[in-house]
Design a protein around this nucleic acid. Structure first.
Lengths: 234, 234
DNA sequence: ACAAAAGTGTTGTCAATACACCCATGG
DNA sequence: CCATGGGTGTATTGACAACACTTTTGT
């Protein structure tokens, strides 16, 4: 039988090619009815003037999700954020400095809660629709993550993560229209969301709007978590 | 401005922690109306008697897909196989020999075309439903890939990759029932597939069955590829 | 009173479901 | 002639799409 002990294996791994592992975060936000992504000006001369996703090398003592949360926390100050791994990007020459394989995550944040710090003055929110060129293969990573988001958002109610705690149905609809890049019928949209039964009516209204104020709702997180458990259970 | 030249970056990457990168292949096959996966007995003493996915370290000169195809080719002799990256698995202690981050792929093969070679006599097909324990975190990888397959198979007609070129509708239905682990109505199933219009009637019949022989079909690959292009186009 | 957006129901269409009988073949 | 699975059509239901008018507020 072809068995090896752990030392053989250790040697094999030590002798084998090792690559650097990084994570890249596609941080989505929603502002002024536009889906945006947080980018930083590339710190590489090769990509001067190009925009780049937020990423870092994964450290020996952290797993991939931890690394991604660390970057997110360092850059936005936020915790408890929705995040999902998308996939790895490993083209041989994707990084000019050597073989770097990157695991892409996307996350959804409430853009109003993000305070861009002084030392982050090269960080900016960009409308996803307007982005043309990016550093590295980040355009491809962004596109893949954006597709994943579009797909996910029609299957599960994760869009709420991009909104303030209290929101109107119009805001919610604008969000979906921005993400999916479609126009939706207002009445059908309302019907659908009320039927899903994840909205809690706060009995509050918008303030200081120059028209009839809309009712405000919040997302029923508990009910959603309950149902998730149940549907996973069987 | 905070720019770095390539050498700073090179140093950073050289000095930083580097992990070994592997790929793991979840190779699905379909035989005797059962969804199966190709596994190998672990070559590590730690996992003696446990089954393991087929994987290998990624080499410096190949990208992730190439590495996955290489493993698949070495183990099954097959080329031109359906394959999809699922995600990376990077828990700190997932490999006893050190930090190894693994990118998982699943692929769909025609099990009849796989000839397990002599030197592969520790390779076996296992019914996905019956698998209890596996080496490393391979149970989790398998579960994730299987979920992805279930999801994908109801969105796109990729199931054909698991069948012989010529197949009956019963075989196709059995395949879907096995993958999704549900019972389907025969008439509705037929209606749906004919409506999709991806089946070419070969005007042939099953041979030597002890009942009325079924008609045989093949998958209209061109039509599918055409439509894919169109729907991506706009 | 006007502008601007909120809120609200009904109808038609299409897709998914449920369901039962006759047919062709081998033994 | 019997056992086995192959092949077929219809009626019902539920989900989604299309669509227009009244209400509330600020200016």
């Amino acid at each position: 039988m072809n068995t090896k002990n752990i030392n053989t294996h250790l040697t094999e791994i030590r002798d084998y090619f090792k690559a650097a592992i990084s994570i890249d975060c596609v941080i989505f936000g929603f502002d002024e009815d536009v889906l945006k992504v947080l980018l930083i000006e590339s710190d590489l001369n090769e990509f001067k003037g190009k925009w780049s996703l937020l990423g870092d090398i994964v450290r020996p003592d952290e797993d991939l999700e931890e690394a991604a949360y660390r970057v997110l926390q360092e850059r936005t100050g936020l915790e408890d954020v929705y995040m999902e791994q998308v996939q790895a990007f490993g083209a041989i020459d994707r990084h000019p400095a050597g073989r770097v394989i990157s695991i892409a995550f996307y996350s959804l944040v409430n853009i109003g809660h993000v305070e861009l710090k002084k030392h982050n003055n090269d960080l900016h929110w960009h409308a996803v629709k307007d982005i043309r060129h990016m550093a590295f293969d980040h355009k491809e990573i962004l596109a893949t993550c954006y597709q994943r988001l579009q797909h996910k958002v029609i299957e599960q109610p994760i869009g709420f993560n991009l909104l303030p705690k209290k929101f109107s149905l119009r805001e919610l609809q604008n969000l979906y229209e921005a993400i999916l890049d479609v126009k939706l019928d207002r009445r059908n949209f309302r019907k659908k969301f009320f039927a899903m039964d994840y909205l809690i009516d706060l009995n509050e209204e918008e303030q200081e709007v120059p028209h009839r104020p809309a009712r405000l709702y919040k997302f029923n997180q508990e009910k959603y978590s309950q149902r998730q458990k149940k549907s996973l259970g069987f």
